[in-house]
C-alpha cells in the first residue's frame, strides 16, 4: 500500500519535470541574464557596478516616469473596479439566459487581440470618432475634443481592455456568496446599502483583490494600449524600457529600469497579496 503510494508520488514529480525545465530555461535564465546585464556600467560591457541604478534613482525624470506608470495603474484599476463591480453584480442577479449574455459580453474582448481592441478605441476617441461625433451632433461641443493621446483616453481604453480580468474574479466571488445572506441581512433590518457595505462587499473582497491585482499588473505593463492611445509623448515604463533597449541599444540601462519596474510591481503585488490573505481569513466559511 505504502509502496504504491510512493510510486504514485514520484511519478507525479517526474511529470512536472518538463514544466520545471521550461520554467528554468524560459523564465529564470532570462531573468538572471537581465539582472546581470543591469549591473553593467556601460553598453559595451566590461565593468560592473550600480551606475545604471544610480542613474535611474537619482533622476527625477525617470522617477517621474515610474511614478506616473504606477499611478496610471491605480487609476485604471479604480475605474475598472467601479465599472466592473456593477457588471458582476448584474450577472449575479440575472436569470440564466441573461447570465449567459453578460458572460459572453465580458469574455468577448478576450476573443480578439489587444491590438484590435485598442484600435477600436482609436476609432472611438478620434476627432471623427463616435464620442466626438455624438457630442457634435447633440450640439454639446463646437470643436472636437482631444481624447486620443491623452491620459484620460489611456485610462478609459485600458479599463475596457482589462475589464474581463476584473469582472471574472468578481463574478466568481459574488457567486460564492450565499444569497440567503442578503435576505438574512434585510430581515434583520438592514437596507440595501447597509447589506452591500456590511455583507456583500466584505465577502467579495477576495474577488476584488484578485481582480485589482490582475488589472493593475496588466494595466501598467500594457505596452500596446499605452503607446497606441497615449501616443509618442506620453512616456510610461514599458515604452521607456523599449526606447532604451530598442532605439538606443542601451541594454544595461534598459535592464536596470526593468529590474526597478519589476521590484516596484512586486511590492504592489505583495501588498495586494497581504490584503488578499487577510480578507480570505474570514470569508472562507
Amino acid at each position: 500500500m505504502a509502496a504504491t503510494l510512493r510510486n504514485v508520488t514520484t511519478y507525479d514529480l517526474k511529470l512536472a519535470a518538463p514544466l520545471a525545465a521550461g520554467f528554468v530555461v524560459f523564465f529564470v535564465t532570462p531573468l538572471v541574464i537581465l539582472l546581470a546585464l543591469s549591473f553593467q556600467t556601460d553598453p559595451q560591457g566590461g565593468h560592473f557596478g550600480l551606475t545604471q541604478y544610480v542613474n535611474f534613482l537619482g533622476d527625477s525624470f525617470s522617477l517621474g516616469v515610474l511614478g506616473s506608470t504606477l499611478w496610471l495603474g491605480v487609476k485604471v484599476t479604480a475605474l475598472t473596479l467601479l465599472l466592473g463591480y456593477p457588471v458582476a453584480w448584474l450577472h449575479q442577479r440575472s436569470p440564466g439566459w441573461a447570465k449567459g449574455v453578460i458572460m459572453l459580453l465580458v469574455l468577448l474582448p478576450l476573443l480578439t487581440s489587444v491590438v484590435v481592441r485598442t484600435f477600436a478605441w482609436v476609432v472611438i476617441l478620434g476627432r471623427q470618432g463616435i464620442v466626438n461625433a455624438s457630442l457634435l451632433g447633440l450640439g454639446l461641443i463646437d470643436t472636437p475634443l482631444k481624447l486620443l493621446y491623452t491620459e484620460g483616453g489611456v485610462v478609459m481604453a485600458l479599463a475596457q481592455v482589462q475589464m474581463p480580468l476584473m469582472v471574472l474574479p468578481l463574478i466568481t466571488a459574488l457567486s460564492r456568496i450565499d444569497p440567503n445572506l442578503a435576505d438574512a441581512s434585510s430581515v434583520l433590518g438592514a437596507g440595501h446599502w447597509r447589506t452591500f457595505r456590511k455583507v456583500i462587499l466584505p465577502l467579495s473582497l477576495p474577488g476584488i483583490i484578485a481582480g485589482c491585482l490582475l488589472t493593475y499588473a496588466a494595466a501598467i505593463t500594457a505596452f500596446i494600449t499605452q503607446s497606441l492611445i497615449g501616443g509618442g509623448q506620453m512616456l510610461f515604463m514599458p515604452m521607456y524600457i523599449y526606447q532604451q533597449a530598442s532605439t538606443l541599444q542601451n541594454w544595461p540601462f534598459a535592464a536596470a529600469i526593468s529590474v526597478i519596474f519589476l521590484v516596484a510591481v512586486l511590492v504592489v503585488v505583495s501588498i495586494f497579496n497581504v490584503l488578499g490573505r487577510l480578507s480570505r481569513g474570514y470569508t472562507n466559511a
Binding site: D178, N180, D183, S186, V187, G189, T283, A285
Partner: peptide, 28 residues
C-alpha cells in the same frame, strides 16, 4: 423586508461568515 419586524432562520442558517457569533447576533 427590513421594515417588517420578521425574524428568520434559514435552512443553512445563513450566518455572516466574516463576523463573530456575537457580531452576528448584534447585527440586527
Amino acid at each position: 423586508p427590513n421594515r417588517r419586524s420578521v425574524g428568520i432562520v434559514f435552512q443553512n442558517y445563513a450566518l455572516f461568515p466574516h463576523m463573530t457569533v456575537a457580531e452576528n447576533v448584534a447585527y440586527g
